[in-house]
Amino acid sequence: MEYPEDSALLSRLLSGEESAYRELVATYQGSMRAVALAIVGSRNSDEVVQDAWLAVVNSLKGFQGRSSLKTWLLTITANTAKTRLKHNRREVLMDDLPGPHGTIGDDRFADDGHWLMAPHEWHQDTPEAMLLQNELRECLEKTLGSLSNMQSSVLVLRERQGLELEEICNLLDISLSNVRVLLHRARLKMFATLEHFEETGQC
């Protein structure tokens, strides 16, 4: 087994140990949902994730450890989703809706490319302190809600699960340059919301 950190968990899973399944579900449910959402959309994603989990359990014995458990789980999820999708080929919408607080757009820069309105120092600059503010949390959720399915999935897979960009391309069948653009725009929207809140104290 090339992924030693997985093998202990795997043997506990194979023996049906419930705490091992709790660990597995807690670690991967969010990413599996992100993969399903990107491929089949929100109406069918819960069902796809359910089916994928059952497929995972059914094929656990045959898991060879040639890839990491993470890659294996997400590949099963992507395949389950693609089977569901079959004929209707989706297109990746690159012109997503604007975020509630915009982005870091051209208007922030002078003609020579220097900052016109440079970022100010933030009052709070630890994530823990920021997230204690309920209103900010709700505000960020609103911004996340404005992302397209594909964009929010890419963000989850990169920022929360730490997938390489190439892995994201392969799972979701989109090009590397699309992944980079989606990710960049999503990050700037989040940034713009945090900055707006820091400056105005409201959403």
Binding site: W122, D125, M130, L140, L144, R187, M190, F191
Partner: peptide, 15 residues
């Protein structure tokens, strides 16, 4: 601040 905003996103409870 981009790094802070990444960290905030990672720590948010999304599920």
């Amino acid at each position: 601040q981009m790094k802070i905003s990444q960290a905030v996103y990672r720590k948010m409870q999304l599920e």
